[in-house]
Design a protein around this nucleic acid. Sequence first.
RNA 1: GUGAAUGUAGCUCAGUCGGUAGAGCUCUGGAUUGUGAUUCCAGCGGUCGUGGGUUCGAGCCCCAUCGUUCACCCCA
Length: 424
Amino acid sequence: MSTKIQAIRGMNDILPEKTIFWRVVERKLSDILIGYGYQELRLPLLEKTALFQRVIGEVTDIVEKEMYTFDDRNGESLSLRPEGTAGCVRAMIEHGLLRNTIQKIWYNGAMFRYEKPQKERYRQFHQIGVEVYGLSTADIDAEILLMTARFWQVLGLKDLELQINSLGSSVARATYREKLVEYFSNNLEQLDEDSHRRLHSNPLRILDSKNPDLKTLIENAPQLLDYLDDESKQHFEQLQMFLNDAGLKYTINPRLVRGLDYYNKTVFEWVTTKLGSQGTVCAGGRYDGLVEQLGGSNTPAIGFALGLERLIALLEAEQLFQNTKENQPHIYLMMVGNEALIKGLSLAEQLRNEFPQLKLITHCGGGNFKNQFKKADKSGAKWALILGETELANQQIGFKNLREEQPQQSFSRSDLITHLKSLL
RNA sequence: GUGAAUGUAGCUCAGUCGGUAGAGCUCUGGAUUGUGAUUCCAGCGGUCGUGGGUUCGAGCCCCAUCGUUCACCCCA
């Protein structure tokens, strides 16, 4: 309805029935990250537009047409972050955290891209980002991949596929890019409209085209792996050796190129076929030149981003949230009558003191027994505590199991606490 | 940015040839005056996305617009 104010297109409310999944996933992933020695960084949502222009590349779609950009009151151009690496590198340099040291960093938060919304692609979306600075050897590339594999294992996901590739040094990549442009330019008449455009913006992307008409042309194109410099070749071989040794399965996808300009050497994606055309759940790679490009000292780096919406959608598709009891209350406290309300609220606080982990809902708003039992049942609580006139007169508290057929019991306050201790 | 589908109750949907709107679920109450989840009965709930047009008459036909969905592009 046009008179109602609606959320901005592509920006979703995450409702209570879903936030529980988010909390579970975020907690499991952050536990793993902390277990590998990563430290959390919290970054602003807004940065100067120039930062993204320099980091992501002037001619990429992200910078050209997908950023939420506006002028600050002092006339400076600001943008909502379309990805996390730029702000992370900026912050690391700004606070001098990259001087002669290794840093392992993670962050979690919203990113913004002005794209047409689609299945699991939104204008505000959430990523967990991971970045490592100061390590140039392939062992860290391998460890990062092993850690992501652990993510899926802990969450119960089985059918994500790991694809890896090497883009080589920036020099090798540039040489290859020239060869590729030359090759496609000689076959211009075979290219479709999209690929014509990509010839100037990101020719490596043509290799990834979904257009079947281009299949032969792409198969005969120069291969990136043939242009790798020796150092990158060796790095890539070492990475494979580490992965083989650790038993992590992967496929080498020579057409795997990343959209952002800053990558070199190792790039990778974890992909699924279960989310329609948005199959990439987690992706990243090495970006050894970026820190220096932004004014820091020469610092090798590698990182990745994980799309939380996609990950959670995949977990839902695989029905892996079935037995989440995270939110199930232990107790629903029913109170009928004014006197019961007064006694009940103090009882509830006493129980909370006694059992800090207790999930207890007190019935507020009055109502008869039938009404309160209905709400107790709907709350999902395991047990109902019942306080009415009879109980008050006898100084007792009714106790009823709402999930199993058992006779209703009656306890004094101290007996109730003893009983709960045996149950919780 | 390109293309297609779609919009009726809080949710999922029906609505015939154009004749002023229906079901299930949810919610509330009752059957049962202190016992939920089952059953039965009743009730609440609508500017048919919005604005225009055609028509004696539009949920239905036409135009525009907004939203949603899926795909392309791009990407997590």
